[in-house]
């Protein structure tokens, strides 16, 4: 799931504005994930965050044939 570093969040809300699946909300001026199953992993929240407070990490795996 996207990882949020609350200490880096400046409360600008840009991530919430670009999240098309409404997985993010602001709680007490800090971004919070509410609908984990709905996250489409588009990584736009990470892209727009000006402070690097959101990380959408990828697991890299090799498909065995």
């Amino acid at each position: 799931m996207p990882v949020i570093a609350p200490e880096k969040c400046n409360g600008c809300g840009l991530c919430v504005s670009v999240c098309y699946c409404h997985a993010l909300i602001m709680v007490d001026n800090i971004v919070t994930i509410i609908e984990i199953e709905d996250c489409g992993w588009c990584t736009q929240c990470e892209a727009v965050c000006p402070t690097g407070a959101i990380s959408c990490a990828f697991e890299i795996v090799i498909e065995e044939h």
Binding site: A47, S55, A57, F58, E59, I60, V61, I62, E64
Partner: peptide
């Protein structure tokens, strides 16, 4: 990076963001 950081099936590799 993808080849070097991929998990080997037994242990998962590190999770990486596009920024990383």
């Amino acid at each position: 990076i993808l080849l070097e950081q991929a998990g080997d099936g037994k242990s998962p590799g590190p999770r990486l963001t596009q920024q990383e």
